[in-house]
Simulated assay, not measured.
Amino acid sequence: MLIAVATYNEIDNLPIFVERLADTLPNVDLLVIDDGSPDGTGDWCLQEAKVNPHIHCLHRQGKPGLGSAIIAAMKYAVAHDYEVMVNLDADLSHPPEMIPLFLEAWEENDPGATVVIGSRYIKGGGIQGWPWKRHMMSKAINFYTRWLLWLPMADCSGSFRAYPVKLLKQVDFDSFLSQGYSFFEEILYHLKREGAQFVEVPFTFVERQYGASKISLQKAMVAVGTIFRLGMKVWFRA
């Protein structure tokens, strides 16, 4: 199993995340995709990788985008023949202690085709620490995505997920429109076309305590536009 996190300026969070992950799953492999963090996140990861064979670092120049970072992680998982890749944020908003529950849900269904989604919008899930505007924006983007892309899950925009690598091998990542936040909606669109089944596990998202959120209105609007372009493919195909 591979755990993948994309980082940019997470030096206050990543060491805590790694410690909590090791306490939960001591022998799991961790891939950190760092986009040249000026705060030393990538350097810290590189030093840890020298003493911990389970930690791997992928350093990229500039900020190509969150979506492209997760695509790089998925290609890494495919190339190294993992069975499942779990993606989550390193800012501690996604509790690594939840990963065993994701794996249980994955194993209880068809492991080769089941995508497990950490859901904030089903019974038992929730969000702590967001202003009302961000709540409204998130709910709107999820409704918009479900309607345009005909997706069945309640939470289309979260990044806390487990992906079967067998299914990722069938995805043409070069065809993706998304480089940023809309990647999380677009990958569901592609996986659904490949016959994926989706299972949602409730969890409570807790807003980060350290560092700054990378989302902005401009990035959100770019995501909306990308989802619209994908939606046109779905509707015209129908």
Rank of each mutant, 00 (worst) to 15 (best):
V201D: 00
V201P: 02
L177W: 04
T114W: 10
K166L: 13
Y181R: 01
P164F: 07
R208D: 08
Y181I: 12
L149I: 06
I117F: 01
P164W: 04
G129I: 09
A140Q: 09
F205Y: 15
Y144P: 00
E194N: 13
Y144S: 05
R146V: 02
W132R: 12
S119N: 06
V165L: 07
E185G: 03
G211N: 10
R120G: 06
S138V: 08
D172V: 02
Q197V: 07
V171F: 03
K123I: 00
G125C: 07
L148E: 06
N142K: 09
I127G: 06
M137V: 11
Q209H: 15
V171K: 05
W147A: 08
D110F: 06
G124I: 00
L188C: 02
E185Y: 10
F203K: 06
V206I: 15
M137S: 10
V199G: 01
F143L: 13
K139P: 03
A162V: 00
P111W: 11
I187Q: 04
C156P: 03
L149E: 02
R134F: 11
Y163D: 02
F205R: 04
L168A: 03
S216A: 11
I141W: 01
G129P: 04
L217F: 15
Q170F: 05
P202R: 01
E194S: 10
W130I: 05
K166V: 06
R193M: 14
T145F: 03
E194R: 15
Y121D: 06
H135N: 11
W132P: 06
E108P: 10
S119R: 01
T114F: 11
D110Y: 05
E186M: 13
G180F: 05
S213K: 14
Y189V: 02
A212S: 15
E207Q: 14
V206M: 10
V199T: 15
G158E: 04
L151E: 07
E186C: 05
I215H: 11
R120E: 09
L188T: 02
P111L: 11
Y144I: 00
Y181P: 05
F205M: 13
V206Y: 00
I127D: 08
E108C: 13
L148H: 04
K133W: 10
T114C: 09
Y189T: 01
S138R: 10
Q197W: 00
H135T: 06
Q170L: 14
K133G: 09
P131I: 10
G195D: 05
K166Q: 14
V201H: 11
G112Y: 02
G129W: 01
G211A: 13
E108H: 13
V116T: 07
P131N: 12
Q209C: 13
M137Q: 12
S138W: 02
S213R: 10
P131E: 12
A196W: 01
Q197M: 09
G124N: 08
M136E: 12
E185N: 12
P202Y: 02
W150R: 15
V201K: 03
A196Q: 03
